[in-house]
Design a protein around this nucleic acid. Structure first.
Lengths: 113, 113
DNA sequence: ATAAATACATTGGAATCTTATGTATTATTG
DNA sequence: CAATAATACATAAGATTCCAATGTATTTAT
């Protein structure tokens, strides 16, 4: 199943923060591949989505970066700042509560008499 | 907890279709109240969101309408069309699979060695 | 050699919600 | 009985946010 974009929208920050929380440091391309792999290709995080997300997280002070050269090719690693670690937990929890709330709606609800 | 709009966005059609699947016919204001009630006020579906959603569903042929007068006040009831019933099931299933896929990402995933 | 994969990045457009506003009726309450 | 809250519809302008497309460059595989 391919998910409509409007469903995935709004979860990108959560996904990136969580991956960084589990992996200390990752670079952009690595994140796109990991998402693809972990979701069995059901969610594709394209570059047009990922890089703006990473840059936003950086400007919010939630991640820090360090650049590394592999041969001549640059690689930019992202790591969570202390506030980023807190934010990661918060966003994961928020998503869980959101799902729980949606369940209240999507489990069968007959009109009371 | 109040959910950020970008998380709820994209679920409105699913919510409305599901409520109509369970309740045969509902009118707009009733839907806003039911959502508030079922989610313990965690999700508010405002009129600016609901009416455009209902009109979109109607133009897609997923719902039909009938107008009723309560005194002088008009009330517009919405019901699922056959294709709307199918769509409702599809969207609910889609959301469930989306959640399952997100779980793959949000459960702890350490980098393989 | 050529193609595919790796790796960064930006931009314009599209889609979608949200705030604000508008109109009107009915019920409640002080 | 006047004022307020609740009921009930609706739209429009603006903000936000993604996404497809595009661009550059290096490395690896065929």
């Amino acid at each position: 199943m391919i998910f409509p974009p409007e469903l995935i929208k709004g979860t990108f920050k959560t996904i990136v923060l969580k991956l960084l929380a589990d992996n200390k440091k990752m670079y952009g391309y690595e994140i796109t591949q990991r998402v693809k792999e972990l979701t069995l290709e059901r969610i594709q995080m394209t570059e047009g989505t990922l890089y703006p997300t990473l840059h936003a997280l950086e400007s919010e002070g939630l991640v820090t970066t360090e650049t590394e050269y592999i041969g001549k090719r640059v690689r930019k690693y992202y790591s969570l700042s202390p506030s980023g670690k807190a934010k990661s937990k918060e966003k994961v929890k928020e998503f869980a509560e959101f799902v729980a709330t949606m369940q209240l709606l999507l489990d069968t609800n007959l009109k009371p008499i």
